[in-house]
Design a protein around this nucleic acid. Structure first.
Lengths: 151, 151
DNA sequence: GATGAAACAGCCGAGCT
DNA sequence: AGCTCGGCTGTTTCATC
């Protein structure tokens, strides 16, 4: 489904999403229209789901990053999912194995706002909060490998 | 340090990093050169740290995503940090409060490769792994707010 | 997938507020 | 000092092979 060139294009766009199509074309030894068509296909198939700017949240005033574990009863999920999607300070939310079934990554200006938010979450269940001290590996794209599935 | 226009530009680039400067200029009612200069400044100040393509890891063959808690002795961090940065399957690694001081997000083709990786991590300390079932809120940029710091 | 042409966007200067 | 305008260069896209 993905050939070597598609994987190379994805890799280049992961490291710089604003690279020009012409430059991409040079890197993979293809013409610009050919690359353009490949990108359209990758986007249409939702293999590439978007292009985003990465920002320094501390410099934007979000000094506190944290992971919140939240134990949500299965029956509450229909209420919880729309709620969590609308929270502006939620960077990511995953449903995971284990006692605390939701793992939520958030950013706040200070612990005051974090505390308020955790208070709101407690209507859904027990929480456990871990504050981020440092980030040895910032969120990054991982290389597309050979074992991509057919579809 | 950041005015309303800077915040709007960041927000637009977070939702689509490949938007043209001309289009950005129209959105904020400025000229293209003015927007270009603002972006250069935001990049130079490392407020915008990069532009990345988001991909569907399942479609790339990474069927298993997981969070691994790892208890690392402080003295081991000088060895652990370079190690974890070089691991190709690590999406993110944070140092956090609590017993398990590292929280590592990874993606693997199957539980077999995940198991092998967890085995490697155990030279650094005790681990606890939680596999992702679903992702109600995928990793996303949060809106730049008014309380951005001076610098 | 390549080529060439036309439309478009980005860049650098000059002049203005 | 920072913005806008104009012309030049580079980029994207479309039609054709």
């Amino acid at each position: 489904m993905l050939d070597k060139i598609d994987r190379k294009l994805i890799e280049l766009l992961q490291s710089n999403a604003r690279i020009s199509i012409k430059r991409l074309a040079q890197e993979v030894f293809l013409s610009a229209p050919a690359v353009s068509a490949r990108l359209e296909r990758l986007e249409k198939l939702k293999i590439i789901t978007g292009y985003t700017a990465s920002v320094d949240y501390v410099k934007l005033g979000y000094h506190i990053m944290a992971f919140i574990n939240l134990e949500v009863a299965p029956s509450e999920k229909v209420v919880f999912y729309p709620f969590i999607q609308k929270c502006p300070n939620v960077i990511e939310c995953n449903c995971i194995t284990g006692n605390y079934s939701m793992l939520i990554k958030v950013a706040f200006p200070s612990t005051v706002e974090l505390d308020t938010f955790v208070g709101q979450l407690q209507q859904f269940g027990h929480t456990q909060t871990q504050i981020v001290f440092s980030t040895p590996v910032p969120h990054r794209g991982i290389k597309p490998a050979d074992y991509s599935e057919e579809q």
